[in-house]
Design a protein around this nucleic acid. Structure first.
Length: 206
DNA sequence: TATACGATCACCT
DNA sequence: GGTGATCGTATAC
């Protein structure tokens, strides 16, 4: 059950590689009372640098996106639509703004607590979506800038690479066509907890 | 200071 | 398939 935590060398690589390789890994959240919540990462998206028009850093550094410019392995958590939180892992070298958005998990530990945080929503959508998984794991902006390589209560553990990976366009972005066409969304093939079925634009088997 | 809007979700028809 | 919620942030005035 206890596995090694992913270290900074893992996150310091090319963002697309990190997004792909995070599939199958375990996101762990330890609550104050010591309870462990976790889920296998089954869907991610890559946001890469100021030239990526869909990236929050597309218009340069601001107070909100500053964490994206810091060292790999930090958590970038922001509030969207005034309601939901989204969790990202910062990637690449310090000074280059890039991150991987964690979009869905397959719940593993602490299901009862997650159901409580999710107000009794069906298990099927317990952690299926970036806002939902943050609610299920009690992740909010207080984690923005926290270090996934060091933090005692939020980190990623080693896990088995999935048998199949499917790529697709990123969800919910309203940037230019080039950004919309990029296949920078990564999903575990056939997994029930992926937030929206991939349209099978690109298929990879690893 | 004012305003428009977003890497979403739940609930409605 | 459509839409309102809700507020921090970026940008314009």
């Amino acid at each position: 059950m206890t596995a090694d935590r992913l270290d900074r060398t893992f996150f310091s690589r090319d963002t697309l590689a990190v997004a792909r390789d995070l599939l199958g890994k375990r996101l762990v959240r330890l609550l104050a009372e010591g309870q462990r919540l976790s889920g296998i990462i089954v869907e991610t998206e890559a946001y890469v640098g100021e030239t990526d028009r869909a990236c929050h850093a597309a218009r340069g550094r601001t107070p909100r996106n500053a964490v994206m410019y810091e060292k790999a392995g930090l958590a970038y958590v922001y509030l969207i639509y005034g309601i939901h939180h989204c969790l990202n892992a910062v990637t690449e070298q310090e000074g280059f703004p890039a991150a991987v958005l964690i979009r869905a998990l397959e719940p593993q530990e602490g299901l009862a607590k997650m159901r409580e945080f999710r107000s009794g929503q069906p298990d099927r959508i317990l952690t299926s979506g970036p806002g939902r998984l943050c609610q299920a794991l009690a992740i909010d902006r207080t984690f923005n800038g926290s270090d996934l390589c060091i933090s005692p209560d939020l980190y990623v553990e080693e896990g088995d690479a999935p048998a199949g990976i499917v790529t697709d366009t990123r969800i919910g972005i309203s940037a230019d066509e080039t950004a919309r066409e990029r296949l920078w969304r990564f999903c575990v093939a056939g997994n029930l907890y992926v937030s929206r079925p991939p349209r099978n634009r690109g298929t990879k088997v690893e």
